[in-house]
């Protein structure tokens, strides 16, 4: 097992942890944290995959794009969380639901 494969495996585990967090979390800010973990996994996977396939620079440049996107996701998510807290007095996403089945 090469170190690159280890990186891929790590990326997958991070992905799993992030998904698990998304499923479990009810707090809006923690959901943003789970999204961030997912993002780290993806960045790692991109760079590792670039190295493995010999397209190191392509992988890295996409990774940079992803970092920026991820950061913006965090910013907007957090802004949303702050506003939600002000409006509803809670960060529980399931209380925001106005769509009643």
């Amino acid at each position: 097992m090469t170190s690159l494969n280890i990186a891929i495996a790590g990326a997958l585990v991070l992905l799993g942890v992030g998904l698990y967090g998304l499923l479990i979390m009810r707090n809006l800010i923690k959901i943003v944290i789970a999204l961030q973990i997912l993002g780290k996994g993806a960045i790692l996977a991109l760079v590792a995959a670039g190295a493995i396939s010999g397209q190191t620079n392509l992988g890295q440049s996409v990774a940079v794009t992803l970092i920026v996107a991820d950061t913006v996701v965090a910013v907007v998510g957090l802004a949303l969380a702050v506003q939600v807290r002000r409006r509803f007095g809670s960060l529980d996403v399931n209380e925001l639901s106005t769509l009643r089945g």
Binding site: L14, K30, I33, A63
Partner: peptide
């Protein structure tokens, strides 16, 4: 939670550096 996330980020950065992706 946020501090642990910062930890994840730092460690991933180290990993990236080790993989040769210095700028990233």
């Amino acid at each position: 939670s946020a501090i642990w996330l910062a930890g994840v980020s730092a460690l991933v950065a180290l990993l990236l550096y080790w993989l040769g992706a210095h700028e990233v």
